[in-house]
Design a protein around this nucleic acid. Structure first.
Lengths: 136, 136
DNA sequence: GTAAACCCCGTACTCAAGTACGGAGTCAAC
DNA sequence: GTTGACTCCGTACTTGAGTACGGGGTTTAC
């Protein structure tokens, strides 16, 4: 079943098309994020375009910063009736991302300051980075 | 032993002073990040100012974005002889943080675009956020 | 028919940084 | 002495997103 009939995949073929691992597909199924296909060929499950689309949507949402739990919620929304919910979810995610960016910037600035200090002092004096860790 | 003699702490007192949990102190000891004190009173360990300083250094380094593994390495450096090592570690961390910031900014921008699109379309048309997840 | 790739299933494990028990003993205040 | 807070110890568990087995069966290409 390596010879894919259009729109019919084994789990391995589906995984490759979606850019994930076989184990990942099984994991999503186990947690209910992806349905097991009704169709089988012998003992093997046969996946269709719907499952591939679903996997791609999951990946896209992950790239936007959503967790699998959040993605489950998002993919349960109806594009016509739940506009407000989706927008709220996106805005909440934006706020979290912004907050994290600020946090990282503070870290970066603190480190940059220490490195700069390191540049302007010479070898006989102790390392300002290590001293900053050691002192109050 | 709740009556702290200056520079002598039980594990609970030390944890409170350092702003961590008792379990965290034990965890750091288990992984060798913090030494067990030589001094005891009866069955209880007695910690000193050195351990408190060490814990504070760990915390400060964590706030700068270093992992416990990295902190172990940093705290093993000598402030007089290892200036270069410390500076390199800090610079590497800066690069990682910068990269992560950029990643998050891309996420944020993508989300902001979708939210903006949502604002400029009306209820009869489907939610652009959910459509973006579903389409290529 | 044979061998290799693949699938299924159930369970355990990884990563990093903790946190939470349960059981037993210790210490301090009354 | 009693009680409650605390300590110690060893082990298990959490979080989120996977990943890796082992064992057995199936499919495909030669």
């Amino acid at each position: 079943m390596d010879k894919e009939k259009t729109g019919e995949f084994t789990i391995g073929a589906l995984a490759r098309r979606a850019g994930v691992g076989v184990e990942t597909v099984r994991y999503y199924q186990r947690r209910g994020l992806l349905a097991e296909p009704q169709q089988t060929r012998g003992a093997y499950r046969v996946y269709g375009e719907a499952e591939l689309a679903r996997l791609r949507a999951i990946r896209r949402a992950q790239q936007l910063g959503f967790s699998l739990e959040e993605i489950d919620g998002l993919l349960a929304l109806n594009a016509d009736r739940d506009r407000e919910h989706a927008r709220e979810a996106a805005q909440a995610k934006i706020a979290l991302i912004d907050s994290r960016i600020r946090q990282l910037e503070e870290m970066r600035d603190a480190l940059a300051e220490l490195v700069d200090c390191c540049r302007h002092t010479s070898a006989p004096s102790p390392c300002p980075i290590l001293r900053a860790l050691s002192n109050d």
